[in-house]
Design a protein around this nucleic acid. Structure first.
Lengths: 189, 189
DNA sequence: GACTTTAAATACCGATCGGTACATTTAGTA
DNA sequence: TACTAAATGTACCGATCGGTATTTAAAGTC
């Protein structure tokens, strides 16, 4: 089999799980939506959890690559990129198929901290934080860890707000708070 | 039947759903864990969704009451209470049975924005924001809406961080950012 | 104590769950 | 073209899903 077949399956399965949830999507539905029979699916993956794990990993790679590319396109310096984080999130929220953060949802459905799906989802979030930390260091802030964490917390809050429709422009609101935090931190340098 | 019987059912069902998730918890499990037969459950609630909705409503009342009482105990002025929000969250995260925010998880499992469970969960979050807004107004900030939203975003981010174990003390980290924001806002008054 | 009414327990419904045995098709080899 | 091996689709497995019909137990009422 060509590797693209397997990748195609995972990508289509990602759509299904993202839209309908993990436990709510049975293997029959996945088979129907992907156009690949259950037998073929189970030829590639031993269990449903294995498939979901592959879905999480694909989303991890694709989404992180997309987010980084947007941040780097929207900001030309390390400091401006810390704010571009929220512009990129605003773009994400505005996408037609936006249904929240797959990793937050995965942790919500697979609560056991030892579960691979849970751990993989957490790893994604840590990498996001690490990226912000890198930006904060390059921007020359005296306490880059605090800056990075603030950005991360505001971004995650914005995602929750976007899903729950608490405010109209969660990314913009989070950005305003981030501007204040960065300005204050800069003044102390 | 006495009303306490029904309340007892809902409270025990809350435990089950909070620990195992909504779709992952079948009615047979709920019956076993609550010690109430399915027939009795369906005598009180027409469908599983109705039971879940009652669970969400109970959690809404109980959790909001608990959070407000802790915030008011931990802070004696409106401004200090805006920071006590994070101390209360720290207490919550430290509780043995902490498994994240039920409302975030409910929205993750019931994505349809028209679904009553989804809407009820969103309503809870809006009420939290409204409470922060009230505190910000009483504290005399010039733009209480921005302050309240910042607090809310940081708190939600802290919850996500607590669930995903991204950092050791998410509530404390969020508090630090909030302190900076409140100080900056105060200076502009 | 006999009778009625109400509530809960058991057993069961069709549908769907995750997963698989087996028949069928396809592709490669000679 | 005959044969083999890999991949696929179909049909099905026991278990469990949400929900209910029926039976059993409990509580009044006279």
């Amino acid at each position: 089999m060509r590797p693209s077949k397997k990748d195609e399956l995972v990508r289509k399965a990602l759509d299904v799980y993202y839209r309908h949830g993990f436990h709510a999507s049975g293997m029959d539905l996945v088979a129907k939506e992907t156009g690949i029979s259950k037998t073929a699916i189970y030829n590639h993956f031993r269990t449903k959890d294995d498939l979901i794990l592959a879905v999480i990993q694909l989303r991890d790679e694709e989404f992180r690559a997309w987010m980084v590319s947007r941040i780097e396109a929207l900001g030309d310096t390390a400091e401006s990129r810390l704010l571009a984080v929220f512009d990129a999130h605003a773009e994400w929220f505005a996408q037609k198929g936006f249904f929240g953060c797959l990793f937050i949802k995965a942790c919500a459905e697979f609560q056991d901290v030892d579960h691979p799906i849970h751990q993989q989802s957490c790893a994604h979030q840590r990498q996001a934080l690490a990226y912000y930390h890198d930006l904060a260091k390059k921007a020359g802030f005296s306490s880059p860890a605090d800056i990075a964490l603030s950005i991360w917390l505001l971004a995650q809050g914005a995602i929750v707000a976007a899903v729950m429709g608490v405010v109209d422009d969660p990314a913009g609101d989070a950005r305003k708070a981030a501007v204040t935090l960065l300005c204050t931190a800069k003044r102390q340098d």
